[in-house]
Design a protein around this nucleic acid. Structure first.
Lengths: 206, 206
DNA sequence: AATAAAATAGCAAGGCCGTGCTATAAAGAC
DNA sequence: GTCTTTATAGCACGGCCTTGCTATTTTATT
């Protein structure tokens, strides 16, 4: 009967237009009009897929959250596999946590957009939900990583893992925030150094 | 001849209205209209002190930057005084760095407003200047604190202070970002723990 | 009391925005 | 080929915004 389009795919492609506008001009400029233009659609078409402006922004933010979540969780299986050798573990840990840093053009763009959403969420309960989800997700992930390393005997003893989770998560957040002033190299160095300080020293072959 | 008012004081009191509006409703709502109402003035009166909206926002952000800077630097003299005993040093260091955390209602409000400005600055060169000033100021300060502790023999040897400066500054930024989810107590614990890991162990009286 | 300058106030134009509503185009089902 | 449902498009209204400009009020000085 009707012309058939995958509506979810359409929504996602419009969400990507939202990201581009936010990155280029800021969240304040992400109006229905400018997003429609960026997406190459008429404003009425965009509104066919979203009830209104609020719904569009919330959807876009949720999409970004989903994307980040998927990327992060992708590294988990390797890490949780007990067969993974210790040296590999360190690499994987670093790679996983690096996903939270703006090291590439791509991830830097995501970080900037995420920051815009986070700031806006301070006065918008609908967006705040998503910020909380990500906040808790990141801490849960960091906690799993630390727990895993601990059980494998790779961490210093007597660490308070709740505190260390917050410390590491905050460090990652802080590095992500400094976009543009702290070089990717320095970020990696800082992360590596932090992980070093948590690691049990290599026991000299006794 | 004319009615005489201290113009600078007026500007500051208008800037404070800006802070209140931003904290309550977000930066996007900080229009000339709403700020004027919050300040109890007519829109034309506000424009007597500021050329336009942009100048108002830039001024408000700079004021906040100045305020934060002054508070931070207030702790420095004690710390730089070589006569200060070692145990006092630790307290002062902790107190100084705590100024960067949203531990009280007051500082939490400032942090939220600062975050709003920082996010907006991504697409506004005039605001970006101020963000950079604060970024560099904080790192310079943290560096001085670490240098001072180091010269007093209070730090572990072989630390790369450039890396440790960034690591500590990023940690503080990250904690500040988590407003509302991480409790003040946990923030203090995390900061204290981090400083512990940098400190040279108490040499047992030999 | 007169005056001059600063402070305060307000109007109107022009722009962008969201949204309710309506109109047209497209294409699978019959 | 017709129908029906979806996709796409666009208009027009009311609202809030900034800003140029023009009053009006206030008060220290003369």
């Amino acid at each position: 009967m009707p012309k058939i389009v995958d509506p979810e795919a359409r929504r996602l492609s419009i969400a990507e237009a939202v990201f581009r506008v936010i990155q280029r001009d800021g969240l304040a400029q992400a109006s229905l009009r400018s997003v429609a233009e960026e997406a190459g659609l008429a404003i009425g078409s965009v509104r066919h897929y979203f009830r209104g402006h609020d719904e569009l922004i919330v959807f876009a933010m949720r999409s970004l959250g989903d994307r980040l979540e998927a990327r992060l969780l992708g590294h988990l299986p390797d890490l949780l596999d007990p067969g993974t050798p210790r040296s590999r573990r360190q690499e994987i840990t670093e790679a996983l946590l690096s996903e939270l840093l703006p090291l590439t053009e791509q991830t830097r763009a995501e970080t900037d957009v995420w920051l815009a959403f986070s700031a806006a969420a301070k006065n918008r309960p609908d967006l705040a939900e998503e910020v909380v989800r990500m906040y808790e997700g990141v801490r849960a992930l960091v906690r799993r990583v630390l727990d895993g390393a601990n059980e494998a005997g790779g961490l210093l003893e007597d660490l308070d893992l709740a505190v260390e989770t917050e410390r590491l998560a905050a460090l990652l957040d802080g590095l992500a925030l400094s976009t543009g002033r702290t070089s990717p190299e320095l970020m990696k160095t800082v992360l590596r150094r932090h992980l070093e300080t948590l690691r049990r020293p290599e026991t000299v072959t006794e």
